[in-house]
Design a protein around this nucleic acid. Structure first.
Length: 377
RNA sequence: GGGAGAGUAGCGAAGUGGCCAAACGCGGUUGACUGUAAAUCAAUUCCUGAGGGUUCGGCGGUUCAAAUCCGUCCUCUCCCA
């Protein structure tokens, strides 16, 4: 079954859209948050737990799976789905983010990127073709074009050269992609430069991908800059294609993204900060380590229906955290993931009922730190 | 009864005349984390009116200066009887 996106409804109050991604492993309702499972695992959480929290699609990563265990091992097990015992839709990132996050260990050339392995120092070469080839073997439903995620801040000339090269890489990757069961998304870059964002968007769309991502976000820029990056690119992305804001994020950023017409989000934040004791709740972020929860027999969030909140107290979760128990990290990860998944579920409902703006306002008022919300349209 | 050794901040443990309010680790208290080199990193941790004040088992001494040297007492550990 071939991938396609179905736009179902645009909220009458904003650009927020409700739609469905049809993939070989099932449908995904959008807007959606995608938990990140870099090394073929959403850290500490089982597939069954992901199903239970209604995760519809998760991410994995080309670079990391390429290094360990290697794409051959994964292909041998029937791709990521078989390997991980996970049967819902999946997306793999191309390794483009590692061009940013592992910048100290890599060198970019026209041909591709030479990495010095962060594991053993060996020299590795990732090209657009190689990234696609690996992703073909990993077998995710959606794969990403190999790009350079440029640093922030970044000067204009560097950014211009970078996006031109990323466009050439996008073309090469598309030509190397020969699996009709996998959708291929292009990635729009351009940093904070409006003209470069627009140019990158226009040229990437010309290559005709199954969906479009906005990249180079959440790399240190301020929130207004990030929101502007979205606004600069969105008008050039066809309405009948899904839009994916890469590496985002926080509840506020997801709401701001949806407001501007984003359909897909992914972020390590919920799982990472859970392992570090930080918890997202309907009334704001808390840290379970804090002493004030020592005797607190309430759940993390009275509004939450996740497994953790149904069964465990803050007092107990604090104990697990302070003892560095793996079960604590798992329970906190389940909660944070559930929180963002539930947020996107509420968002979808609000959009269908043409009250997304009202929902956004109500949510942020309760969540606190309700940053200034720019109204669009 | 005889002999040897040891007592340092919440705990462990450096320091053995001035550079010591005292390394370091743990523990405690907080903060950060946005396509995961992150079960990580950072701050803080004697009291304080922030000027200082009171500390290194207790007390007394030597010295310009003591956690560090001397005397004495207390406590603990080990060995011999």
């Amino acid at each position: 079954m071939k991938f396609y996106y179905e736009l179902k409804h645009i909220c009458k109050q904003s650009n927020a859209r409700y739609g469905v991604l049809h993939t070989p492993h099932g449908d995904v309702e959008t807007p959606i948050f995608m938990p990140v499972g870099t090394l073929a695992t959403v850290k500490t959480v089982s597939p069954e737990e992901l199903y239970a929290m209604n995760a519809q699609i998760i991410l994995s990563n080309t670079y990391h799976c390429w290094l360990r265990p290697g794409e051959k091992v994964i292909a041998n097990a029937g791709g990521l789905h078989g390997f991980m015992h996970y049967q819902r839709p999946m997306l793999t990132d191309s390794g483009g983010f590692q061009v940013f996050s592992l910048a100290k260990n890599r060198k970019i050339s026209e041909e591709g990127v030479t990495f010095k392995s962060h594991l053993d120092g060996s020299t590795l070469f990732l090209s657009p073709e190689k990234s696609i080839e690996i992703q073909n073997k990993l077998g995710a439903d959606i794969i990403m074009s190999f790009d350079e995620c440029p640093p922030y801040p970044c000067d204009y000339e560097y950014m211009k050269n970078s996006i031109e090269r990323t466009l050439r890489w996008a073309k090469r990757g598309k030509e190397a992609h020969h699996n009709d069961n996998q959708a291929l998304f292009g990635i729009i870059q351009g940093g904070e430069f409006k003209d470069l964002r627009e140019y990158s968007a226009i040229e990437t769309v010309k290559l005709d991908f199954d969906g479009y991502a906005i990249g180079g976000t959440s790399v240190g820029e301020s929130k207004p800059v990030m929101y502007k990056m979205i606004e600069d690119a969105i008008p050039y992305i066809p309405k009948n294609k899904p839009r994916y804001l890469m590496g985002v994020g926080t509840p506020e950023d997801i709401l701001e993204g949806v407001l501007r017409g984003i359909d897909m989000f992914d972020c390590v934040l919920p799982t990472r900060i859970a392992r570090h004791g930080a918890i997202m709740t309907s009334t704001g972020k808390i840290n379970i380590r804090d002493k004030k929860y020592e005797y607190d027999l309430s759940s993390l969030d009275s509004q939450c229906h996740c497994y953790t909140c149904q069964n465990y107290t803050k007092s107990y979760l604090r104990h697990l955290y302070k003892c560095d128990e793996a079960f604590g990290k798992r329970l906190l990860s389940i909660h944070n993931l559930h929180f963002l998944l539930d947020l996107t579920a509420q968002i979808r409902k609000a959009i269908q009922e043409d009250r997304f703006l009202d929902f956004k306002k109500e949510f942020l008022e309760k969540y606190g730190k309700g940053k200034p919300t720019t109204l669009v349209k």
